[in-house]
Design a binder for these strands. Structure first.
Lengths: 248, 248
DNA sequence: GTCCGTTATTGATTCATGTCAAAGCCCTAC
DNA sequence: GTAGGGCTTTGACATGAATCAATAACGGAC
């Protein structure tokens, strides 16, 4: 279908959502094709962060949300006494920073787990745009509610489930997120270290390590470092009995 | 200051945010006086629920958010295998249902902990209104992000803190929420049963009970059933070292 | 006021997971 | 290619909180 020609040229600083392979996962998902230029107007092509770099931290004034384009990000909160709690992992197509909406500073710290590129959505402009595009507003509400639900699901996992159940749940969650991007859901490489997994799931690193080897001995998975293969998804689902709804 | 007379009469079904004592905590907080009638236009005076009644559950189609007017509500998610996880307690002035925004059904079950009255905000109309009132939209984003943050804080509490720390944190959170309503922050009655506290904090009831008596023996609190007095807030804060930021 | 079901407390024991300690592995940088 | 530091694994042991079990207190209904 021929699109009417728009006078909005793609500048080097502007992202082209039209051409982005993640447009069916990211915000463009909720914007009509003929309105997409409005989103492109406000998006800024973010820079590339190398592994370990901070995208922002809890002392940064909150300006923007970030969509992951490639790579992966972990977010965590750090308490007064310096303890860290990993609150999430963000993969391509996912939006980081929603937990800070309406706050003065970011509510968490975001760190690139690997070489990562992002698109930046300045919130003041995003809020203007969501007021104009009801579908987009609805979608942002939806994304935020998803994040609340995911976090509640995590709380449930933390308070009710064993180490094995937690890890099975995480593996399945990652699996479905890879799958959504049309990548293998059974053969992938973990973007995060054991340490991050442990912290996220409220476990000691040693426990994570032990569960991985246990799963391996049972033939459920096969793992070498960050390389993982899910050999028996059924078995993992049996272990879990929950967390399934976390990603829609 | 004289307000221009509005032709919007207060019908029995409509709430009067103007006269509501909670207007400085609830949504009216983010609406200019001269726009308040718009909010009143969409609010429905909800009915009164008696203790134990469901406001909605996970099979109810999502239609509305509810503001607590009096009483208290607990929300929880119930997993496939029937396990319950209490996800929050809502006191007067607080908004229930944000975790379901954009979903087909409610994401949780809401139950009145005591005789409770609510105001109802149908979401379709609320979304229309937030598109028209930028401040209100901003506030809703803010409330949702607060809920994400609170839930992350809970996850941290669950994964990093001892039973004593969790309970101290909850007591302080309740204290500050009572205080915000200009009620005593040191002398109040818990709206929820020990069981709900236990479930929320990922503990066994027995543990909650034991910690209560321990705190009592240490002279930190004094408790008789649901009646609680905080005798040494400092001590509680020392126990906690976190969770403080949970309520703004 | 009294009865009965629910909720709370207290005690004894068990167990999953944390902690401490020590190798081993891998990956990067020189 | 090799050296170094950071991750990861594995083992031994300690422990906080769960579980099981029983009693006690409460609170609503009649």
């Amino acid at each position: 279908m021929a699109q009417p020609i728009r006078l909005h040229q793609v500048s080097p600083l502007k992202a082209s959502c039209h051409q982005c392979s993640l447009s069916n996962l990211c915000l463009p998902l909720a914007v009509e094709d003929n309105e997409l230029y409005r989103l492109e107007d406000i998006v800024q092509q973010g820079r590339i962060f190398s592994r370990g770099e901070h995208i922002f931290d809890q002392s940064t004034p909150f300006r923007s949300c970030f969509a992951v384009k490639s790579g992966a990000i972990k977010t965590s909160i750090i308490s007064e006494n310096g303890e860290e709690q990993v609150t999430g992992f963000f993969m391509p197509g996912e939006l980081v920073g929603l937990d800070s909406m309406g706050s003065k500073n970011y509510a968490c710290t975001a760190k690139a787990l690997e070489r990562t590129s992002v698109c930046e959505f300045p919130v003041d402009r995003l809020e203007e745009l969501t007021a104009k595009l009801p579908d987009l507003q609805h979608h942002v509400y939806h994304l935020m509610s998803q994040e609340i639900q995911g976090s509640h699901q995590l709380a449930m996992l933390l308070s009710k489930n064993t180490a094995e159940e937690r890890i099975a749940a995480l593996l399945l969650s990652l699996s479905s997120r890879f799958h959504r991007r049309r990548m293998s859901g059974t053969n992938f490489s973990l973007p995060m270290a054991r340490n991050d997994i442990a912290n996220f799931l409220g476990l000691a690193v040693e426990t994570v390590s032990r569960v991985f080897t246990r799963f391996q001995n049972q033939g459920i998975i096969s793992a070498r470092g960050r390389e993982v293969e899910l050999l028996d998804v059924e078995a993992l689902q049996t272990v879990t009995r929950e967390f399934s709804r976390q990603n829609q």
